[in-house]
Amino acid sequence: MTAALETRGLAKRFGGLVATRDVSFTLEQGARHALIGPNGAGKTTFVNLLTGVLPASAGRVLLAGEDVTSLSAEARVRRGLVRTFQINQLFGDLTPLETLALAIDEQLGLGGRWSHAVGGDAVVAEITAVAERFGLADVLDSRTDTLPYGKQRLLEIAVAFACKPKVLLLDEPAAGVPEAERRDILDAIAALPVEVSVLLIEHDMDLVFSFARRISVLVDGALLVEGEPEVIAADPRVRAVYLGGNDHG
């Protein structure tokens, strides 16, 4: 079976600085995979290379076997490679309704339409379904920046979900969420459909070990080790990296 997402010899250099070195990585179909690593390990750069925000200096990115290395960020989204953002990058003065409508219109290929107002049965049905799935139905019509932080994080995942991902990159989905609202986010992540392959980029080890069935460790822009959670937890090199440095910082 073709991997959902694969990189071959992916590298990124900024001038003399190597941010990503020769990363060959495979995300299986339906994976629940976590990417961890200390701060400055190059996780953000790696995500930016995967999603096409940054051009790679070398190597390939394959989505379901298809080479997407030279495609733009939005073209990758339309092919099913979708990400969430770490810090809040939602459109604060739009409503969740508008934000979801935006994503769904693009998904349905209606985003360039200018002669009809936003709406239509297909869009409405889809918004309703996504909103209910993520528990956002009662806040759809409020400005996004007035929502509780937990709801905003849920919207972040909901919007990505509305893009109909085949591969979903979750970039620290629960960071900064108060304890009381955390459960909702973990539940939403756990309830993602099995056919969506998920790569979780995370600092929070509790979340990583409760979610992931496979873990990769990125250190200094290179893959240090990959394996099942128990293996990773027991790996002395990983322990050295995390216990040697500051673990969450």
């Binding site: 939005e74 604060g92 409508a101 935006l102 693009e106």
Partner: peptide
Amino acid sequence: RAVVYSPFGLSLMAIRRNRLRASALGVPV
């Protein structure tokens, strides 16, 4: 008016606010 309230107009509003974010939703900026 039609343009502004259409999906096209909505995608423009997203682009103005955050280009990178808009493209991550599949908007061809």
